[in-house]
């Protein structure tokens, strides 16, 4: 187990290095630069800036310098926001984004599995149709539409919650709702399918033949089997949610990290591009590892070893 985990962590570092390398060279291949704008700078000023940020160095030297710094978790200064480093941006934005993200995750897990179980148990009955209908809406209506509708009706018309802003717990409600709509829908669908499959298995019939009451059959015998396929989906999905949703943060005016993913590219803010990309890659690798560990907790047939085969 320990050997396996060490192997996985080494592999993760390799993956992140590959991501850094690819992103670095692709980013520099985009025409334009961080200080290109419609204001024409004096050549001397341009040269000074380039020298200040080592943009005149050969590309490969810039790359090795970046790797060296990144190894010490120094991701450099931002080009756009004077006097702030990439680390500052992540430190400031990520907790806010992660707060909304993790709340949406928990909400999605609870509501999604609940709706999914109900739908499976009441297959082809009203409750199933309602849950499936909600899930279809959640999947097909984009989050910005849901966010805007919430903002207009719940925030502006009914005054239940403040429509925008950050800082007050009340201001969390609508972004979390809007952000969780899609994962709730997906988890509902997956849980339903998975539960239906499990409920027709022979071991459920055995459990019934043992005279166990319905709730024990559903929660002890069926659910544990049904969440195995769900785990696969959840890992990468929650890595994405935690890194923020640009649209939701933009609509609700939340100073999270989401906006930097998009603006850094148009700004050619090289260190921010790199920093955010590494953040996503790291979360993704971590969550996949967590999912693999979670498998072994749920399914005793899965053992983590570094041997091929059984």
């Amino acid at each position: 187990m320990v050997r396996y985990l060490l192997g996985r962590i080494l592999a993760a570092i390799l993956v992140i290095w590959l991501v850094i390398t690819l992103t670095f060279f692709l980013m520099h291949a985009i025409p334009g630069g961080p200080f290109a704008s419609d204001k024409i700078l004096l050549p001397q000023v341009q040269a000074n800036i380039n020298a200040r940020y080592h943009l005149n160095d050969p590309l490969f030297k810039q790359y090795t310098d970046y790797l060296k710094n990144a190894a010490h978790f120094d991701f450099g200064p931002t080009f756009r926001y004077q006097g702030r480093s990439v680390n500052d941006i992540i430190k400031e934005g990520l907790p806010r984004t992660a707060a909304i993200g993790s709340m949406a995750t928990i909400l999605a897990l609870i509501c999604g599995t609940f709706l999914g179980i109900i739908a499976a148990l009441r297959q082809n009955k009203t409750a199933d149709y309602v849950a499936t209908f909600l899930a279809t809406i959640g999947i097909s209506v984009p989050s910005f539409v849901i966010a805007t509708l919430l903002q207009y009706y719940v925030g502006f018309k009914l005054h239940l919650f403040p429509p925008i802003g950050w800082g007050d717990p009340n201001q969390l409600v609508m972004p979390v709702l809007a952000l969780s709509a899609y994962p709730v829908a997906q988890i509902t669908r997956l849980t339903r399918t998975s539960m239906l499959d499990v409920l027709h298995q022979d071991y459920i019939r055995t459990a019934k033949a043992k005279g166990l009451p319905g709730y024990i059959i559903v929660f002890r015998h069926a659910l544990k089997n049904a969440i195995i396929p769900l785990l696969t989906f959840m890992g990468p999905f929650f890595a994405y949610i935690l890194c923020g949703n640009f649209v939701i943060e933009y609509i609700f005016n939340i100073p999270g990290i989401g906006q930097y993913f998009v603006t850094s590219i148009t700004n050619r803010d090289y260190p921010v591009i790199m920093g955010t990309t590494i953040l996503v890659a790291t979360l993704m690798v971590t969550f996949n590892l967590l999912v693999d560990i979670a498998y072994t907790l749920v399914d005793p047939r899965i053992k983590l070893t570094d041997q091929k085969g059984v």
């Binding site: 298995q201 022979d202 071991y203 019939r205 055995t206 459990a207 019934k208 033949a209 043992k210 005279g211 166990l212 002890r220 015998h221 544990k224 089997n225 749920v298 399914d299 005793p300 047939r301």
Partner: peptide, 21 residues
């Protein structure tokens, strides 16, 4: 009655036991 007064054994033992318990 099930399991207490009538016990039942099924055809396929490979799938009749819950794999995760």
């Amino acid at each position: 009655i099930r399991g207490k007064e009538i016990g039942m054994i099924f055809q396929d033992p490979m799938t009749s036991l819950n794999p995760v318990l």
